[in-house]
């Protein structure tokens, strides 16, 4: 269940192929890719920088995947999250989950992404037409994570 935090871009096709390769138990693979938009909160965004807490980030992501594997019968999962300077249309994050059936992998993929948004120590600083600013956390993200509570 690999977790990678890196500056470099990633090749979604190659990553998904590697995740499922040679495992005939896998009947379903769900993935999500997050991208940099050119607008946020009504302002044009020309670039962003992602800061993180080295060490804790990897631990938090591993714990989130661990929680997903306890809740659903998944076979493997992968999270790649980029840090550093990113431009609109750049890829930020890849979450991919494999399993026997689609129900588990769809749910686990969404769960991992929702938890990542509220629990993994990353922070976005964006450059807009009005200057640079740290992105505020969204209540909607907390609500998205909260809905997984029993």
């Amino acid at each position: 269940m690999p977790v990678r935090v890196q500056e470099a871009d990633f090749d979604v096709g190659a990553e998904l192929t590697a995740l499922r390769q040679g495992d005939p138990r896998i009947g379903a693979l769900a993935s999500f890719v997050g991208l940099v938009r050119d607008v946020n909160d009504g302002s044009g965004v020309s670039e962003m920088t992602l800061e993180h807490y080295p060490g804790m980030t990897e631990k938090a992501l591993t714990a989130i995947i661990g929680e997903a594997s306890r809740r659903w019968a998944i076979i493997d999962a992968l999270v790649i999250h980029r840090v550093g300077r990113l431009l609109p249309t750049d890829q930020i994050v890849l979450v991919a989950v494999t399993g026997a059936h689609r129900g588990e992998v769809f749910a686990a993929c969404q769960f991992i992404m929702d938890y990542l948004k509220t629990r993994a120590p990353f922070w976005k600083r964006e450059v807009t037409s009005e200057g640079a600013r740290w992105v505020d956390a969204r209540e909607a993200d907390d609500q998205a994570a909260d809905r997984w509570h029993d």
């Binding site: 997050g34 992602l50 993180h52 807490y53 804790m56 999250h81 930020i92 994050v93 992404m113 990542l116 948004k117 509220t118 629990r119 993994a120 120590p121 990353f122 922070w123 976005k124 740290w134 992105v135 505020d136 956390a137």
Partner: peptide
Amino acid sequence: AFFPPVTGG
């Protein structure tokens, strides 16, 4: 460590 609410993803 002290920090603001996280905003990754």
